[in-house]
C-alpha cells in the first residue's frame, strides 16, 4: 500500500526543525529520520501522521565524533556508519559487532541511530546498548536543550520520554576503557529479523582475573531493555568459569519478566546471557 497523504516539511537547520515541529506537533506531526520504521508503518496505514518534519537535510545531526572521553553520535548517523569501528578500543569494536544484527544492509544505509532510540522497539539493539553503556540523550525543543539518561528515556514499547515537540539531537556514549571486555548475543528466527532475545555484557577484571565490574543487560524480552542488577551482583567478584556462566544464565532467566512466550523467552535469556558472558569473560575457553 501507499502512505496516506501528509504535508512534508524539510527544514535546513535544527532551529528550523524545532520551530517546524513545534508548529505541527499539536496535530500529531512527527519527525522523519531514516524512515525505515515510520515509512513502512505509514505504508501499512498503522501510522497516519498528517505532517512529517524531515530532518535528513540537517548536516549537524549526521556528525559523529569523540570528545571528552565519549562518543557523540548525531541522531541521524546511519547504522552503516558503525560497520567499521568508529572509535579506538572496545567501544568501536562493540558497536561494529552489534550493528551486524540490525536488519539488513540496505536498511542500515538509511536507518539512523537516533531514529532507532526514538522508535523504542523492544527488539532493537541500540536501546540495549544505550542502557548498558550509560548513554545520555540530548533533546531539543523551543524550550531549549535537556539531557535524559538511557533508562529514563525508554518508557515502554514504542514510547520514550520525548515530548511531542522535542527532537533527539545527539546521543553520548562514554568510551570504554581499553581493558573492558564485551560480549553480545542475539537470537532471531532469520538473519536481520527482530530479536527474540539479546544480551550485552561488559566486564572489567581485577589484577587476579576476577570480575571487578559487570554490566549485564537484556533486550527484546521485556517492554524495555534493562540491566539485571541481581545477575551483575552474582558475577561481581567471581572468577569466570563454566559454572559461573551457567549460574548467570539461570539467574537472568529467573530475573526477567517476558512480555510473551514466557517459558521460551526465559530459555532464550538463559542462553544469550550465558553466551554473552562467556564471550566477554573467556573467549579462549569458548574456542577450545
Amino acid at each position: 500500500m501507499k502512505a496516506p497523504p501528509f504535508e512534508w516539511h524539510r527544514p535546513a537547520t535544527l532551529a528550523e526543525a524545532v520551530a517546524s515541529l513545534a508548529a505541527v506537533a499539536p496535530q500529531d506531526g512527527r519527525v522523519l529520520a531514516g524512515g525505515q520504521s515510520l515509512l513502512p508503518a505509514m505504508a501499512l496505514r498503522v501510522a497516519r501522521p498528517p505532517h512529517l518534519v524531515d530532518i535528513n537535510g540537517i548536516a549537524e545531526l549526521g556528525e559523529l565524533r569523540v570528545e571528552d572521553n565519549a562518543l557523540r553520535i548525531g541522531a541521524l548517523v546511519r547504522h552503516a556508519a558503525f560497520h567499521r569501528p568508529v572509535a579506538h578500543g572496545p567501544l568501536g569494536a562493540l558497536m561494529a559487532g552489534v550493528v551486524r544484527h540490525i536488519a539488513h544492509w540496505p536498511i542500515r544505509t538509511r536507518g539512523s541511530f537516533g531514529g532507532s532510540l526514538c522508535h523504542a522497539d523492544p527488539a532493537s539493539e541500540w536501546p540495549l546498548v544505550a542502557v548498558v553503556l550509560g548513554a545520555t540523550m540530548q533533546a531539543v525543543s523551543l524550550r531549549g536543550d535537556r539531557l535524559i539518561d538511557g533508562p529514563a528515556f525508554l518508557r515502554g514499547p514504542l514510547e520514550t520520554a520525548l515530548a511531542p515537540d522535542e527532537i533527539l539531537r545527539a546521543v553520548t556514549l562514554p568510551l570504554l576503557p581499553a581493558d573492558a571486555h564485551w560480549g553480545f548475543e542475539e537470537v532471531a528466527r532469520r538473519a536481520g529479523d527482530f530479536a527474540q532475545a539479546m544480551a550485552l555484557v561488559v566486564l572489567r577484571m581485577d589484577a587476579i582475573g576476577r570480575v571487578a565490574e559487570a554490566r549485564i543487560g537484556i533486550g527484546g524480552v521485556e517492554a524495555v531493555p534493562r540491566r539485571l542488577a541481581a545477575v551483575e551482583a552474582l558475577v561481581n567478584g567471581r572468577l569466570p568459569s563454566a559454572t559461573l556462566v551457567e549460574e548467570a544464565g539461570r539467574a537472568a532467566a529467573a530475573a526477567c519478566d517476558p512480555m510473551e512466550d514466557a517459558p521460551y523467552r526465559r530459555a532464550l535469556v538463559r542462553a544469550v546471557v550465558s553466551r554473552a558472558l562467556a564471550s566477554a569473560a573467556m573467549p579462549q575457553a569458548l574456542a577450545a
Binding site: 524512515g35 525505515q36 515509512l39 513502512p40 505504508a43 501499512l44 539488513h104 540496505p106 536498511i107 544505509t109
Partner: peptide, 21 residues
Amino acid sequence: EHGVCGACTVLVDGRAVRSCL
C-alpha cells in the same frame, strides 16, 4: 512496499537503499 522483500533496492549516491522506504 514496506521494506521486507528487497526487490526495489537501488543505489542512491552509491549506497544501496530500499526505494519503497
